[in-house]
Design a protein around this nucleic acid. Structure first.
Lengths: 182, 182
DNA sequence: TTGCTAGTAAAACGATCGTTGTACAGGCGC
DNA sequence: GCGCCTGTACAACGATCGTTTTACTAGCAA
């Protein structure tokens, strides 16, 4: 089980840097020093490894979000994004990147990403309700748009700038919504 | 020159639907009914075709933005995005998708996308200054984040919902910035 | 006519791909 | 001792990849 984790971790770094379909299994297994035979013992196929990497990535990120109980739940979303980008690099959302490349060939991966994005949206909605005192689906979606926008933009401009601006905008939207019914 | 354009148009549809590296040249050339020989006469390599597709896409989108002189330059950004997604499908920004997949192998494509995003950011900044009466780099970046966020989110949720919410948020941010010095 | 251009069809190139088979080494429980 | 599990090394599989070669057709200009 330890080997399996190190395969996923190494493959995750390669996919992050070089994309999904442009690298062979040898390059994917190089960081973990694994033989191809072991890969197929654990995962059965390359696509299944990709699936496991996405699953691990998302679980890891959600665990990071759930790990703390912040005073400002919405602003904290972007603080966590900042930490994530610093640790993993800023090359766009790996889930969406994979989805776009496997849309035509792997229904499993498409379904996985759909579920993951749904789970993430619900977490944002929960935080918005926490800070607003009531549910606001539109505001939650707008915060989510800023989050996805910052993630995408961070691969082009300075990540700190993008995330900081997104955070400011999100808090302003929340304040405006609070004022509407205060 | 007519044949070249039809190759690019057909390849663009395939890349949009199936990604960049997961499809062979035969599938890429199928929509335009082109022989492989003709592809290499025109472009020299598959990567060069990808480059040409990205170039064409961005040029097409920027031409659409420049084609009209709207009363509300910022809101119009999202109206144009709506039109674009209706016509071309909502699967995320093709430029960023290509960049993430060719980051490790084609410096030309990476450089092209960087330049294109810079040009797009400048157009947004121009519109923000038009509607605000003064330059505001941070606000322009926030509008851009909402735009990129809506583009990415439209591949997961209903595009009309995502773009509409992004538009509302952008206009609210503009109004807030206008109020600050009104 | 001659020649040039632009295109197609089909086969083949070498390289690389994902995947499997075989043989072997070390560790751990019995 | 024994067998079992996990992993490695290495070669090979067939398939597919991007690319090139050759031969051929149609149109258009001189």
């Amino acid at each position: 089980m330890d080997k399996r984790n190190s395969i996923v971790a190494g493959a995750s770094r390669i996919f992050e840097l070089s994309g999904f379909r442009g690298v062979g299994v040898d390059a994917v297994l190089a960081p973990s020093g694994t033989s191809t035979r072991t890969l197929y013992k654990h995962f059965g196929s390359r696509d299944a490894l990709v699936w496991a990497v996405l699953e691990d990535r998302h679980r890891q990120f959600m665990r990071q979000l759930w790990g703390n109980d912040p005073a400002d739940p919405v602003g904290d979303l972007f603080d966590q994004l900042q930490l994530w980008l610093d640790a993993h690099g800023a090359r766009g959302c790996m889930l969406l990147r994979a989805r776009s490349e496997y849309a035509g060939s792997s229904a499993d991966i498409v379904a996985l990403v759909r579920d993951q994005k749904g789970e993430f949206e619900r977490e944002i909605a929960r935080r918005v309700e926490l800070v607003l005192g009531r549910a606001d689906a539109r505001l939650a979606r707008q915060v989510w748009l800023l989050f996805e926008g910052a993630t995408a933009a961070a691969s082009v401009v300075d990540p700190h700038l993008a995330v900081g601006d997104a955070r400011d905008a999100a808090l302003l939207l929340v304040a405006a919504a609070r004022g509407q019914t205060a």
